[in-house]
């Protein structure tokens, strides 16, 4: 684990609370946002984390993730805001996808943008990393969004040395990525070193699954399955956790963090190789980011 990365992230957190009026930490219950919570604790200790967490819940999350989220919030005495994609659907703001590859992943954007407006958040802290995906490799640490939540990828502010410029106009907001420079392995090594607890689905367990396009899909009422797609029970774990409709499992027997770290070191597939949402097209992530995805 790289010691500089931890100091860099803590420095970024402290700039956020100093430069913005109303920051929020976007919390998904995945390992990256859990890591952010630990870093935020370190940045402000012995004071409490001076901003709430917000979860944009698609309603299709793994129950293990939701249980974990609620327990963490309670233990650390944090404030949690939950906004539901279902509400955006009921209000007629977004239309649910149907059929084989349907997912609420991209619908989250509308719910997120509405919540930013409702609570007047001017800074949304997220756990996206540059090594995850090629469009994210272009992302700034302080990434300015206009009042439509859009990312102007060709016109980004230069970031020099440690100096972060968070100046914005009313209505704009900034997405902030404190672990921009961390790799997947950095995150896991940090979780191991710090003894951070993570949801059980990151470790090998038995699950009802079916195979589609060479990926392992969870069998669940939320996930559309064709009749000829055969359900079987396999020992799997999740390497990345979105909701059930956009995250594929990997075959694994890794039961401890040390085993997970070892598995990742030897893996010949990247982390987002198990993200169904990235596979829609070559530019799936860039397109989502342009309209306000984080």
């Amino acid at each position: 684990m790289n010691h500089n990365l931890e100091s860099e992230a803590i420095h970024i957190f402290r700039e956020v609370v100093s430069q913005f009026n109303k920051p929020v930490l976007l919390f998904s219950g995945g390992k990256d946002s859990i890591t952010l919570v630990r870093l935020a604790q370190k940045a402000f200790y012995p004071a409490r984390i001076p901003f709430p967490l917000m979860h944009i819940d698609t309603g299709h999350n793994f129950p293990e993730t939701i249980e974990f989220r609620d327990r963490l919030v309670k233990e650390l005495g944090l404030k949690l805001i939950v906004k539901n994609v279902q509400d955006s659907i009921d209000e007629g703001k977004v239309k649910e996808e149907n059929g084989k590859y349907s997912s609420r992943n991209s619908l989250q954007t509308t719910t997120l943008l509405d919540a930013i407006e409702e609570f007047k958040f001017d800074a949304c802290i997220g756990g996206a990393r540059r090594d995850e995906e090629k469009a994210r490799a272009k992302e700034r640490i302080f990434s300015v969004r206009d009042d439509f939540g859009q990312w102007d990828e060709k016109n980004q502010r230069p970031e020099l040395f440690d100096m972060l410029n968070g100046k914005i106009d009313l209505g704009q907001n900034v997405r902030i990525f404190p672990i921009s420079n961390w790799t997947e392995l950095d995150v896991w090594s940090y979780i191991e070193k710090e003894g951070i607890e993570i949801p059980s689905i990151y470790f090998a367990h038995q699950r009802e699954i079916f195979i589609r396009d060479g990926l392992i899909w969870s069998h669940s009422p939320f996930v559309y399955k064709e009749d000829n797609e055969k359900v079987e029970i396999k020992t799997v774990r999740f390497r990345t956790v979105g909701d059930m409709t956009c995250t594929a499992a990997v075959a694994s027997h890794a039961k401890t963090i040390a085993e997970v770290v070892q598995e990742i070191q030897q893996s010949s597939i990247s982390e987002r190789g198990a993200r169904i949402d990235d596979k829609r097209s070559e530019a799936a992530m860039e397109k989502r980011k342009q309209v306000g995805y984080f």
């Binding site: 090594d131 090629k134 490799a137 060709k154 921009s180 790799t183 070559e282 860039e286």
Partner: peptide, 20 residues
């Protein structure tokens, strides 16, 4: 390394990319 659509279309690098 050229992660943006415009970069891949034109075969040029437009913005700093970070590679690990």
């Amino acid at each position: 390394t050229d992660g943006l659509v415009a970069e891949r279309e034109q075969g040029i690098t437009i913005d700093v990319a970070h590679i690990y």
